[in-house]
Design a protein around this nucleic acid. Sequence first.
DNA 1: CTGACTTTGTGCCGCTGATAAACAAAACCC
DNA 2: GGGTTTTGTTTATCAGCGGCACAAAGTCAG
Lengths: 413, 413
Amino acid sequence: MKNHLTPLGPKADKATVRRHNLSLVLRAVHDAGEATRAGVATHVGLTRAAVSSLVEQLLEYGFVTEWGKTSSGQVGRPGTVLKVARTGPAGLGVEINIDYVAVCVVDLAGTDRVRLVEHVDNRGVPPSQVLAHAARLAARAIGSAAEQDLLPAGVHLALPGLVTGGTVRQAPNLGWQRVAVEGLFAQALLALRPAHRALPVSSDNEANAAALAELWFGAGTEGVRSFLYLTGEIGVGGALVLRGELLRGAHGFAGEIGHMVLEPDGPLCRCGARGCLEQYAGQAALLRAAGIDADSGVRGVTDLGRRARRGEPAALAAIEQAGRRLGLVVSGAVNLFDPDAVMLGGAYRELMEWLAPAVERELALRVVSGLWTEDGKRLRAASPLGDAARGAAGVIVREVLEDPAAYAERVGE
Amino acid sequence: MKNHLTPLGPKADKATVRRHNLSLVLRAVHDAGEATRAGVATHVGLTRAAVSSLVEQLLEYGFVTEWGKTSSGQVGRPGTVLKVARTGPAGLGVEINIDYVAVCVVDLAGTDRVRLVEHVDNRGVPPSQVLAHAARLAARAIGSAAEQDLLPAGVHLALPGLVTGGTVRQAPNLGWQRVAVEGLFAQALLALRPAHRALPVSSDNEANAAALAELWFGAGTEGVRSFLYLTGEIGVGGALVLRGELLRGAHGFAGEIGHMVLEPDGPLCRCGARGCLEQYAGQAALLRAAGIDADSGVRGVTDLGRRARRGEPAALAAIEQAGRRLGLVVSGAVNLFDPDAVMLGGAYRELMEWLAPAVERELALRVVSGLWTEDGKRLRAASPLGDAARGAAGVIVREVLEDPAAYAERVGE
DNA sequence: CTGACTTTGTGCCGCTGATAAACAAAACCC
DNA sequence: GGGTTTTGTTTATCAGCGGCACAAAGTCAG
């Protein structure tokens, strides 16, 4: 066996155990909403004594708070109610998109406490300028968060492009190439808040962040932990979530579904190839097929929705066509991935009503062995646009929840 | 956050630490080939004392053996050489395929020690009969293993079809449906060895096992830990390995690449849809296009290879066509997954020489942003057919290496 | 050949984090 | 108000790793 069967990973010792269990009870309280020490103990399998000790530490660090006694009418001594703290550590998410910048602060419990959106056309604007703008917005959000006693543990950036290792390799819709976003953003933020400690900055694809938002905050999709997320924007973005984990690929570029082939000799795509999905089911193609100005963006899509609702044949046919094409490609992706569900976001969300039947038809036909229908996989509309910022904030929150000790060490002197 | 950010998982305690570190040093020795206690200590970060204690336990259980002193000419006291034991626990893999059954015993070090192959046409034969046959072969392999002081820790079955939860949902090429393979095999094996303890049986798709064989034992692919594996058989099988882990999907059906669409209105496929890849690049289609009897199987493929080598235009054109089609679909999969490499196995292996250029051309054209060429991703030929059994055996070996304590507890008394 | 030096492997002690069991506290029930 | 039940804490015990010292077994320099 030449290749390691599995990476060796770090050693384990007492400290490892403590960190692990600290995270375990914190997440148990988080998932339960509210809990008692005894409840957590039976749930996670630790002794009450151990949980007590762990909770004491979590209280000290400010990750959880006591909320009086449980007055449940149950026989026996009532327990003290524990909840995840609504102050202290938080996540800060920043979404930089083509025509807006959104910032979001999420607390440990997962509710968003600050949200700022600013509409700006970022196309063609120099990256440093856009990032400086985003940093200003972020600084404002940090200020609002501070007023609520929330302190972001880090910033996560979401950008529409191929991003890896802290830099945007290329973002065609922004016109960016090889931009070291993490560094530039950190620098801009530090310049705005010279007295403060630098926040750790991380970054990822916007579709990935949106998919995570769907996973963690999506309404009506509670049990779904494996899904394919599609977003109809200028292009067609995609992200894959498998068993609650984002599938990033070997280099972080997984999910590029927009350039799967439909017609080998079809229209030329800006990727250089021909007949990509984007050329048939992208926003521009969709609008053009319906006879609407292809550059009209969001307004164009709502217009298309209006026409479809009125029953205009051209609109319905255009959506139906795009839906069929989308279904062809998506069914392939489903065969390859075997997800529980497919979620359509972006422009598709608004057109779901007319798009879904066509997509669903192809799925039912092409997903092997009828697993699609049988296992109750479903086509769903994703949450409204702009939630990538929330997903990005969630990334930070998750990091804290998964290793509270690390955060405490970093912050506590 | 309605969904758990991450599954809670089990608690950690002293025992957890011990198990973890036990596996850690065992794998360290495994990966190094041979090592000393001190070397392992510095490598994994534990103290020499701790490693000593752990190694003592591993010696006691028989996972590692001492091999004299290290006579390296280095200054200082020579260390005692440790190697993974070549006796004791082993993995048993069983591949049940359309026209053969293969069995393989692999020891902890990863070398295969027993290999039995029997050619039989399993098409249309009742599952219980096929499984009984496989069990007989397995029993013989266990016997040969015992002569070499090897004791399989479990059996892993590899089958050509959709398999989940211990049962084959459907295996069109075998004509099976809803066959509880694990149960039947375990029963058959127990009947042959009534005095012995029952071996734990697990099962998976044949393409998955072959991909794992490629990952763990493949020649010339040492660093590649993320790849798409394609195997040209009757159908077109596929499997995805990402960062050294098999991607199973939400229900274990991931990798079905054979039914991705090429022509929405193309020829009818046995899956019920039209224009699937299988209809263009499957073995039968390939042979038919070259004017060879489509049912001639492996002989047909070698015949095709011979004709291609002679430069027969029909053969070359057929392969070229199939290659282009394969490339179209594979480039989509690469965009979706972002693997390091694509490996072609099965019938494709023999035709690699003529197939590769066509596939490569599409990949270079269609994989977004030229990552394909830039990052040195590559198209490679996979290992010879029949290694799925070896991969399956590897699954068992990995289980042991990842938790030696569990195995020792199970066996010890 | 001999003493200095280096490296290995193994005791021994201390620390820490979880378990187990006992106990006090605070409800309920009759 | 006594019995019961459940909670949370206290105390003693146990196991595993880190740190340190030390014997063992080699190389190197003179």
